[in-house]
Design a protein around this nucleic acid. Structure first.
Length: 119
DNA sequence: ATTCTGACTTGGG
DNA sequence: CCCCAAGCCAGAA
C-alpha cells in the first residue's frame, strides 16, 4: 500500500470546478425551461465560467446526438441561431424551438425580452 | 512545445 | 449597422 505522500495530489483547478467545466454547462442547460431560451453568455455566467461563452458553444458542440439535453434552447445574444458547420442542425434547432411555441421574426431572431429565460 | 480555430460576448470606436 | 481587441479554453495541426 503506497504511502500518503505517493498519492496523486488534488488537481488544482479553478475554484469550484469539479470534473470539468462542461458538466456545469450541461447542468445549467438542463434547467432551461421549455418554451424559453438562454444565451451562451448567460449560460456561461450561471455555470461559473465568467466570460467563457465560447466554451459553452464548444461544450454543446461536443455533445452526443443522443444526449437528453435541451441544447436547442441555447442561442446567441442577438436572439439568433448560431449554427453553420454540420448542416441541418440549425434548421432542426429552429424546428424544435418553434415546436415549443417560440417564434422567430422575419430576420430569424427571437425576442429575448419575451422568450429569454430569467434564471 | 506552439499556433490556429471555433455552436460566443463585451466594450470601444 | 460595421470593424476590432480582449477574454475564454479544448482540440487539431
Amino acid at each position: 500500500m503506497p504511502r500518503v505522500s505517493s498519492l496523486k495530489p488534488p488537481p488544482t483547478r479553478s475554484p469550484g470546478t469539479p470534473d470539468g467545466r462542461w458538466q456545469r454547462v450541461y447542468a445549467v442547460v438542463g434547467r432551461i425551461p421549455r418554451g424559453k431560451v438562454a444565451t451562451y453568455g448567460q449560460v456561461a455566467r450561471l455555470a461559473g465560467l465568467g466570460r467563457g461563452a465560447r466554451q459553452v458553444g464548444y461544450a454543446l458542440h461536443a455533445l452526443p446526438d443522443n444526449a437528453s439535453l435541451p441544447w436547442h434552447r441555447v442561442i446567441n445574444r442577438l436572439g439568433e441561431i448560431s449554427l453553420r458547420r454540420s448542416g441541418g442542425h440549425d434548421e432542426l434547432q429552429r424546428l424544435l424551438l418553434e415546436r415549443e411555441g417560440i417564434r422567430f421574426d422575419q430576420k430569424g431572431r427571437v425576442d429575448l425580452s419575451e422568450f429569454g429565460w430569467q434564471a
